[in-house]
Nucleic acid binder design. Structure first.
Lengths: 168, 168
DNA sequence: TATGTTACCATACAGATGTATGGTATTTTT
DNA sequence: AAAAATACCATACATCTGTATGGTAACATA
C-alpha cells in the first residue's frame, strides 16, 4: 500500500513535520514553494498529491493549511543530537551533531529547541538518568530562569515521556 | 493598558484558546463566525480588533489563521476537574465538575482530554502524588492500551510539569 | 440631549489559496 | 524502444480569507 517516498517527496514531508510539530501550524502551498524555491504552487500541489497517494499525509480539500499527518504514533523522525550535558553542570554544544535519535512524532518539538544527551546521574532524583535524551527549549519562560526539558528514554521499549520544567 | 474583555469578547478568546491549544491550529474568521452563528466575518473581525487592542492576542496581517495568543506563560485558564482517580484503581467521573484549576496555557490540552485529581499514593513511584492534577487524553494511542497523562503540581509554587505515558 | 461603546448586519475588494489543465525535460521501468 | 514515473514550469480560475467602509440598534455615560 504505502510506497517509498522519493528524495524530493521526503524532503517536503520533513518540512511538513517540522512545521506542524515545531511551529504548530501547517504551511500553505505558497509557504512550501517559497521554502524550496519553487516558482509555482502547482509543483508543490503535485508533490503533496503524490505523498498523499502514498499514505503519508491527508489533505482536507479546499481548506487552507488543511494538511494532516497520518503518521501520528506510527512514525519516528530522526533528529540530530547537538551535545551533551553533565546534568547540573554547564553544557557542551558540539559544532556538529554527535548522534541521531529516531524521535516519535508525538514529542512536539517547539522550534529552536534542540537535543542533548545527559551524562552523569546527578539529576536522577528528578528521574533523569545518564544516557537519556533531553529536549531543551531555550525560548520558554527564559525570564524565570527556567529550562523546560523533556526526557525521552530510548526508543519504543520503555515508552516513557516526561516533560518537565527544571530550575537551573 | 489591558482593559477588561466584554462577555462576547471573552467567549471568542476562549474559543481561540480552545482551538489553538486543543486543535493546534488557529481558526479562520469564517470558522469563528460559523461557530458563533454570525452571518458575517466582519463582525468577528471587529471583535478580534477589540481583543487585540486590549492586548490579548496578536494578529499577523493578511495571513490566514494568523492569530497568536500573547498570553503564553502569563495566563492561567480555568478548567473544570471532572473526577478523581484512586491511582491504580478504576476512576470515578462525576457528572458535574467537582473543582476548577487555573491551568497555565503552556499545558497543551488536546481536544477531548480532561482533568482528574489523584487520590492515594500508589503511583508515587511514578512521581504522581495524591492531590496532583492529571490530564488524560483518551485518544492518544488507545490501541496500545496506554494512557497519556500529564501531572501538574498545584499552581505556580512548585512549577513542575510532567508529561508521561503510563501503562495501565 | 449628545456622545461613546458594544454588537451586530451588508456589501465590496485585493490578495491568498487550493485546484485544474497542459506543457517540457529527465530518469526509470518495462 | 516504448511507456511510465518524476520533477519542474506556466497559466487560469473559483473560492477562501482578511480587510475596509458604512449602516442599524441597544445601552450606558457625560
Amino acid at each position: 500500500m504505502k510506497k517509498e517516498l522519493t528524495e524530493v517527496q521526503k524532503n517536503i514531508l520533513d518540512f511538513l513535520i517540522d512545521q506542524i510539530k515545531g511551529k504548530g501550524i501547517p504551511p500553505t502551498l505558497a509557504d512550501i514553494a517559497d521554502y524550496f524555491g519553487y516558482s509555482n504552487r502547482a509543483t508543490v500541489q503535485q508533490h503533496l498529491q503524490a505523498i498523499e497517494k502514498k499514505g503519508y499525509i491527508k489533505k482536507s480539500p479546499k481548506l487552507s493549511r488543511g494538511i494532516e499527518l497520518t503518521l501520528e504514533d506510527k512514525f519516528f523522525v530522526p533528529k540530530p543530537i547537538l551535545g551533551e550535558v553533565a546534568a547540573g553542570n554547564p553544557l557542551t554544544i558540539y559544532p556538529d551533531a554527535i548522534d541521531t535519535v529516531k524521535l516519535p512524532t508525538i514529542a512536539k518539538m517547539p522550534q529552536d529547541s534542540f537535543l542533548l544527551r545527559v551524562k552523569g546521574d546527578s539529576l536522577k532524583d528528578a528521574y533523569i538518568f545518564s544516557g537519556d535524551i533531553v529536549i531543551v527549549n531555550p525560548n520558554l519562560e527564559p525570564k524565570n530562569g527556567q529550562i523546560v526539558v523533556a526526557v525521552l528514554d530510548d526508543a519504543a521499549v520503555v515508552k516513557r515521556f516526561y516533560k518537565k520544567k527544571n530550575e537551573i
